[in-house]
């Protein structure tokens, strides 16, 4: 039946071509430029290339030898992992909980969404005040309950705390994002299925395990892909809170490191190479995720 409706491919092009045209012109064309640039020597964003690199694959060698790129990679992988576990995980729990209550669903939906409404750079400034060494919210709080001496505040941005201080706000901000997507997905699940299961005597947990999660699979897979690509691109919040890999080059992420190379250090060709690495990594990881979560066709 499906095949019958959608066998004629004529309309297909009408549906796909406008979007593809947009992406080709504004994303793939610049990306191809990136690939070309990665072999050239360019020292300022507005400039023409000064020549081909010696050897032409110089940047790709550098990519694997650059210790700061190693730091960025390590942190980004950690970011992806934490994003999946905490952002999607917490969002799923919250979505299931909200789906199970009667009063205040509207309130919670709106409330969870708040952090996304505020731009990440504004949030970064706010968290700077929260984690401030001298008179920040957390240190003030700890001093008030006498867990900390007034003259010995904790530096939340030093080497031993920096990563946690960076990851917590990033994870926190986007929980609402996945929450909204998952909540929309949950609403799409037919109520009759639950009722039938209830009549059959299934407990709440069984219903979640046997109906909700399997039916949510497509949505979850979408979330996973979004989480991976999102984590690879995270930029604003870390940049505002930890500019230039501060402290001591420990907080680089692929996104911030690429920005540093292109806009601060003027190594345009190397930054193009990092951009390619980001894209390749994203495609490989999200493909792997889709494979694992193999989508079910209905």
């Amino acid at each position: 039946m499906n095949a019958m409706i959608y066998r004629k491919k004529g309309a297909l092009f009408l549906f796909l071509i406008p979007s593809l045209l947009f992406m080709a012109v504004f994303l793939y064309y610049p990306f191809v430029m990136n690939v070309i640039n990665s072999f050239l020597h360019i020292t300022a964003l507005g400039d023409k290339a000064l020549g081909v690199n010696q050897p032409w694959y110089e940047n790709y060698v550098k990519l694997f030898q650059d210790p700061l790129m190693g730091v960025a990679m390590k942190n980004t992988f950690l970011m992806i992992l934490l994003t999946i576990v905490f952002q999607v995980g917490i969002a799923l729990v919250l979505a299931l909980l909200v789906d199970n209550i009667r009063f205040g669903t509207q309130f919670f939906r709106t409330a969870f969404f708040f952090p996304i409404v505020i731009s990440a750079s504004a949030l970064g400034l706010m968290f700077n005040l929260v984690f401030l060494y001298d008179g920040g919210m957390i240190n003030q709080l700890l001093q008030a309950i006498h867990l900390q001496q007034a003259d010995l505040p904790i530096d939340w941005k030093d080497k031993s705390h920096a990563l946690a201080t960076m990851f917590i706000p990033v994870c926190w901000q986007y929980v609402g994002f996945y929450f909204v997507i998952l909540a929309t997905g949950l609403n799409n699940i037919s109520q009759e299925l639950y009722e039938a299961a209830e009549i059959d005597g299934a407990t709440k947990m069984q219903r979640i395990g046997c109906i909700t999660l399997p039916l949510l699979r497509n949505t979850l897979c979408t979330c996973l892909v979004l989480a991976i690509t999102g984590a690879l691109k995270v930029f604003d919040l870390p940049w505002v809170m930890f500019p230039s890999g501060m402290p001591m080059d420990t907080t680089w992420l692929t996104g911030t490191y690429m920005y540093q190379q292109a806009w601060k250090l003027g190594d345009v060709d190397y930054s193009s190479t990092i951009a390619i690495a980001i894209v390749v990594l994203g495609v490989v990881l999200s493909q792997a995720a889709s494979r694992i979560f193999k989508e079910k066709e209905y």
Partner: peptide, 10 residues
């Protein structure tokens, strides 16, 4: 999916 990965500054 790949096009989602292009950072705007690139």
């Amino acid at each position: 999916v790949a096009s989602m990965m292009f950072p705007v500054f690139a």
